[in-house]
Design a protein around this nucleic acid. Sequence first.
DNA 1: AAGGAAAATGAAATTCATTTTCAAAATAAA
DNA 2: TTTATTTTGAAAATGAATTTCATTTTCCTT
Lengths: 170, 170
Amino acid sequence: MYKSVKSFKISEKKERLKNSLKEKGLKSTRQRDVIATEFLRGTGHITAEDLYKKIGRKHKGIGFTTVYRTLKLLTTLGLATERVFADNLTRYEPLPAEDHHDHLICINCGTITEFENMKMERLQEKISNEFGFYTVIHKMEIYGYCKKCKYHSTEVSEYELNKAKAKNKK
Amino acid sequence: MYKSVKSFKISEKKERLKNSLKEKGLKSTRQRDVIATEFLRGTGHITAEDLYKKIGRKHKGIGFTTVYRTLKLLTTLGLATERVFADNLTRYEPLPAEDHHDHLICINCGTITEFENMKMERLQEKISNEFGFYTVIHKMEIYGYCKKCKYHSTEVSEYELNKAKAKNKK
DNA sequence: AAGGAAAATGAAATTCATTTTCAAAATAAA
DNA sequence: TTTATTTTGAAAATGAATTTCATTTTCCTT
Ligand SMILES: [Mn+2]
Ligand SMILES: [Mn+2]
Ligand SMILES: [Zn+2]
Ligand SMILES: [Zn+2]
């Protein structure tokens, strides 16, 4: 039977999750399976809140707390990573991604584009060394207008708008 | 009378503040003067909370809210800028600084070191362009162990410790 | 299969930095 | 002064993140 590359990777990760759980004396549950599956299927950069909503549409009775805790768990187990961009929300993306990467973030439409640049990595390391630093992680984000939004930037930024909405909600 | 370069710059900035206030129909107050002075004297990367405490020692009766609002005001007027590092606290530093700069942050002692690297700036711009982005700002932070802390990292991170303290306070 | 210990769940409560509210005080123009 | 406008600051509100705890579920052992 045909199997896409992506679904293969997902099942591989789910296998890894299952093993890690057993190894640590933790339990496999319906909730963890649903949450992990839905999360790993996604394109990443999702908040616990949004994943909770996404799941809520298809599956009944999975609480926000469990989604939140499962994302934390996946992070602990090396299957996810946390990202905090300028809107100060904690987002998660599946790991291991192709490789280390940084982000371009559109302040109009919120689109997040990933990039990887070895020259940049080496330069960062060089700078770090110059100051006698030992680098653990780095964060590199470029904020601006994406290709699509570049020429329409007289409108109110949807990204800013979302922040405003988030504030006014309820 | 002798005047240091730095105090000259501070009075220059305070002059600018005074003018901006008048221009916008805002008022000059004792609080704003004290807060601006104390802030501009500092080395930057200070939270509203810490500036409030620092001021509290010398001057009586300046509320946290006013410190908070004055830092926001200075930011609006282009005399300060907000920075949010991995501990998720909003810090402020005087502007205009020498130039645009990025940060090296020690995850052991919390020391923040500034650096400026033109090669890095150009490379970022190049990457942005490749994706058709129009760059507005960028964020580049390197987290690791500083020169001092590099060889003592078996101890509990003071940076982490502060986060813990912050949590347990009260 | 039961039994039982340990872990997981989820609604509700808590935390904590940030932001807003509002009544009283201060500022500055007339 | 007088008066309109702004500022102040204590207290309240906000909201995302985290914790609590009673109940339920898992899964290991008889
Ligand atoms: Mn990413
Ligand atoms: Mn700085
Ligand atoms: Zn866009
Ligand atoms: Zn250090």
